[in-house]
Computed example of a mutant assay.
Amino acid sequence: MIVSKKMEGIIMSPTAYEKRRISEFDSYCKHVLRNEAKDIQRQLARKRKVEISFSDLSEMDLNQLYVFDEYKTDKHFFHVINEQVALQSNHLSRALKKLSDTKQKVILLSYFLEMTDQEIGEALNVARSTIQYRRSAALKELKAEMEEHEHE
């Protein structure tokens, strides 16, 4: 910005032409900055319409954003009446292994192979009421075992 010129000890004011050029440049800079601010505001408004924060996503939407790799070595396998049941939970697998063989079969057939008490009774050659009793006893043992090792 030219405010004054110094020539051989004489201080000169800017000419009318220089003042006008300074004013035009100042006006041009303000105009550019004003338009740039408008462009940024429009761009942010467009982004707000199509983008959403991760914290605003529902649990279901968040679950769609990632995938867990599954390997056979990560699963625990149980064999029940010519069927194979794979469990991924170490906690549940450990608790199931501590049950007696008959209670373990009842739980696996009932909850993982979705068999009724009658079907389980027929498969194990046991009365339906016995299956019901074994399942409720097994569930109590499972609950106690899992609560005991809950923080591991």
Rank of each mutant, 00 (worst) to 15 (best):
E150K: 15
G9S: 04
S93Y: 02
K143R: 14
Q88E: 14
L124W: 06
A16Q: 12
D39G: 11
H149A: 05
D117W: 08
K97R: 15
L62F: 00
S58C: 04
F112K: 07
K38Q: 07
I52A: 06
A45P: 00
L99Y: 05
R20C: 00
G9H: 04
L57H: 10
F25Y: 13
Y17K: 14
L99Q: 06
S55Q: 11
L113V: 05
Q64F: 04
G121R: 07
S27Y: 08
R48P: 00
E59Y: 08
S100M: 05
D117A: 14
T116K: 05
N63G: 13
D56N: 15
N82L: 12
E114W: 08
T102Y: 03
L65D: 05
H79Q: 10
M146Y: 03
L99H: 06
R48T: 09
T102D: 10
K49N: 10
L44V: 09
D101Q: 11
D26E: 12
H31F: 06
V67P: 00
Y66M: 12
S110Q: 09
V106M: 01
I120D: 01
R21G: 00
L87A: 01
L113G: 02
R42W: 04
I10R: 13
L109T: 04
S55C: 08
I107M: 02
L96T: 03
Q84S: 09
T116L: 03
M1K: 06
N82C: 07
R20A: 12
L44I: 08
R20P: 00
F25V: 12
R42E: 10
V126R: 12
S4G: 10
Y71C: 00
K98A: 12
Q118E: 15
Y71T: 00
V106I: 04
K72A: 03
K98T: 11
V32D: 01
H91G: 01
V50R: 06
M1Q: 09
M146E: 04
I52C: 05
V67Y: 10
K140I: 08
S23F: 05
S55T: 12
E147Q: 13
L33R: 12
E145K: 08
V80P: 02
E114P: 00
Y111W: 09
